[in-house]
Write a protein that binds this DNA or RNA. Structure first.
Lengths: 346, 346
DNA sequence: CTGTTAGCGCCTTCAC
DNA sequence: GTGAAGGCGCTAACAG
């Protein structure tokens, strides 16, 4: 049915071993035979079978990516970086857009294992113990992006979330804001939510501004969290001049809710985002946000992943220090138009 | 190194055939042996090797998806539908977010072929002849989403773009608008751009409103097209009260440019989007748009794909009528807040 | 009910 | 330089 290496061999009048060598550009054959074989290949329309190749060769040139379906834009940007670098290196990418359900990620990892991916990139969610165990069991390189593992020492690629949030909040304070509301991450998770929460609080503390717990809301990084958060703040009756958030989408939710409530941004309330996805530039007004170099992070992730693979390092037992291949990328405050300076009368 | 079916067989004291049967839930073995084998599997931590399986079984339980990196939100919604249905049926999804470059899609198809995907879903872009040829050559089922092939008879899943745009435009007209600008698709492509362009023009014609070519702009479905388009219209000096677009992102670009220009929506200008992605609800003001049931379309695509596979129909020569598995989904006008009624004085 | 035996398409020693 | 042969892990007929 389908044309195989054997057909090519016959057509070219050589053995399959020779064909294999030529396909894989290994040395050991004459210029002439090469011509013949190449001709036969073209003539027959031969395509190598990656399954057979992977079966014997023990590499599939495939890397698996697990990412929660948080924000389309967040994923897109990250994926872009991953995809580009993977492609450059001749790898394909299997993405599992883990849906709502928590169980899926584990199942997807299992599928990755069965499909023999050469490595996995795990994005932005907290790893559960079963996942960690499975990952260790798979004996493949693993890179975490925008997240960390508490129990294992998987190398990660991320920004310093606490510092980033600290810087963002400090900027707000420097602009004269004192009553600052904050919309945090899911259950204030230990991974991204926790550090950002701490960053916010530390900045407030350093400026000796007490934080008003009524102006703190924990959401899930989505648009809805932004609108719900703003409503909660409004309902509290306590005044605030700014709201800092943990994602652009959430910030846009705030923008939207403000608009609905007749509050104008930044005149009535300033808003700070996080991520610097395309949504930030599309927002009205354009969103001032803490920028994560998402595409670079994606590229870096595959780079480190392959490095890990070269070293055949598939063991990630917990240690004191972070894995040597871990990378902390630089965040940056991206000034746009949602934060206004407040002149306080003394 | 890795544990195989053979190890399990030895551990359980049976033959590999029996193990295989049990794994695949085929009939023919005793309760007892099943217990033993299952125990051995668990004990050894055995996982089937999908490559070996695919090599012999001639199915990989994998479907390949090609989609241009147009809009993160557009893709996300569609992918959600695809992913969910595929998962439900035990399939994995390989997505190729075809980047900027046109050459990539063909290369990715080639990779799909080598990896022996069981079918491919091709989204939202015009197929090039080489792609069509390759697809035919691959002998796998193919479904087109939000696009069509001119030369081949691949079944598609889409909305009636012309009618949808006609309806949207007509709505604008019914609301009293006459000077309506239009931002179309890339080069006015034959696939989505063409029909939408025609739909717009037909609606105008039916209302006996001449279209002002200065108020027509062809972009690429992105945010930037919206801002550029609006600027072009403004520069023309000709008055307009509404702008119809071919994507939500473009519409949001218009919103943004209006905001910058000090025009308020919908008071000064009404705006119509297309797609009804999440961006539409996040927009300020929330965007009135033509809704494509993206998630349903995605689900439908895999459904039809697998149906094709059952029938072993891999031949898509051009015919008079569309393929019987083609589906036209219903579009719908999603009224929100970017279109205002105009009362014209007579 | 269960084991034996062929391959699936390819790569990789090992001879020649 | 090139060919023959032995698997990679698994499924699918055949035999029992």
């Amino acid at each position: 049915m389908t044309v195989t290496i054997k057909d090519v061999a016959k057509e070219a009048g050589v053995s399959i071993a020779t064909v294999s060598r030529i396909i894989n550009k290994q040395a050991g054959y004459g210029k002439m035979t090469e011509q013949n074989v190449l001709a036969a290949i073209k003539q027959l329309g031969y395509t190598p079978n990656a399954l057979a190749r992977g079966l014997v060769g023990r590499e599939t040139k495939t890397i698996g990516v697990i990412m929660p379906k948080v924000s389309g834009l967040f994923s897109a940007k990250l994926l872009e970086g991953i995809d580009k670098e993977a492609r450059r290196r001749g790898f394909s990418v299997f993405v599992s857009h883990t849906q709502v359900n928590e169980g899926h990620a584990l199942k997807d990892l299992q599928v990755f294992r069965e499909k023999q991916v050469d490595g996995v990139i795990y994005i932005s969610d907290e790893l559960t113990p079963p996942q960690e165990d499975l990952l260790m069991d798979m004996k493949v390189p693993v890179i975490l992006v925008a997240t960390r593992s508490l129990r294992m020492n998987f190398p990660y690629v991320k920004v310093d979330d606490e510092q980033a949030m600290y810087d963002g909040t400090t900027y707000l304070i420097d602009q004269g804001h004192r009553e600052i509301a904050f919309i945090g991450g899911e259950n204030n998770d230990a991974i991204a939510g926790g550090p950002r929460d701490r960053g916010f609080r530390r900045a407030m503390a350093d400026a000796t501004i007490p934080v008003n717990e009524l102006l703190i809301y924990y959401g899930n990084y989505q648009f809805e969290s932004g609108v719900d958060g703003l409503h909660a703040f409004l309902a509290s009756g306590d005044p605030f001049t700014a709201v800092a958030t943990v994602s652009d989408e959430t910030a846009i939710g705030v923008l939207s809710a403000c608009w609905t409530a007749g509050l104008s941004v930044p005149e009535d309330v300033s808003v700070l985002g996080y991520d610097n996805t395309k949504a930030a530039v599309m927002a009205i007004p354009p969103l001032t946000t803490i920028s994560q170099p998402l595409d670079a992070m994606g590229g870096r992730a595959v780079e480190q992943l392959l490095k890990l693979r070269e070293h055949e390092e598939y063991d990630f037992k917990q240690t004191e220090t972070p894995h040597s291949l871990s990378t902390t990328m630089l965040h940056q405050l991206k000034l746009r138009e949602t934060i206004k300076r407040i002149n306080r009368e003394v």
